[in-house]
């Protein structure tokens, strides 16, 4: 699977036209992480976004005294990284590959630039971003409910 195919098949790019795919393609490069590798670290500048193709990624936070706690897992089809959306953002969490992971890394500045230049592309990607955000929010809410907690 080449980069174009990988991009076309990823839910983040679903519904985009051929020219729009072509416009995004120069922003993307194929990346591969070994299990255990850190993809980005909490506090670093958020300059990329990642479209996971295969594998799995844990979003971690370092809690003093407890170590690196995994807060959420992402997998194939997921979008990794949201802090890039507003320029100058920094990663809030550390992303670590839990298994060998294949992804497309997209340069955030380039993507934002193309979204500005082509409002139709900007709108389509924004919708995907909102959908992704809603889904993640829903999961976090349920997680917060702690439904398996022993009743008092």
């Amino acid at each position: 699977m080449n980069e174009r195919e990988a991009l076309e098949r990823h839910p983040f790019a679903a519904g985009l036209s051929d020219p729009q795919i072509s416009a995004l393609l120069p922003c993307a490069r194929r990346v591969r992480y070994r299990a255990g590798a850190v993809i980005f670290r909490e506090g670093a500048a958020a300059t990329s976004l990642y479209l996971i193709i295969t594998g799995g990624v844990a979003l971690e936070q370092h809690v003093p005294g407890k170590g690196d706690l995994a807060l959420e897992s992402l997998g194939p089809g997921d979008l990794l990284g949201l802090s890039w959306i507003f320029p100058g953002g920094h990663w809030l969490l550390t992303a670590r590959a839990t298994t060998d992971t294949d992804a497309l890394e997209l340069n955030a500045r380039d993507v934002l630039q193309r979204m500005d230049l082509d409002p139709a592309l900007g709108f389509a990607l924004s919708k995907h971003l909102v959908a992704q955000l809603c889904q993640r929010l829903e999961r976090v809410r349920l997680q917060r409910l702690d439904v398996y907690r022993a009743p008092k």
Binding site: G56, G67, L69, A70, S73, G75, D78, T98, R139, Y148
Partner: peptide, 23 residues
């Protein structure tokens, strides 16, 4: 498998069970 909260060192899935459906 997925867990809602994991200690350090857990290499499995973290998140609600419904998130597993996408896999």
């Amino acid at each position: 498998l997925s867990v809602d909260r994991a200690p350090a060192g857990w290499n499995g899935q973290v998140g609600v069970v419904t998130s597993l459906l996408s896999s």
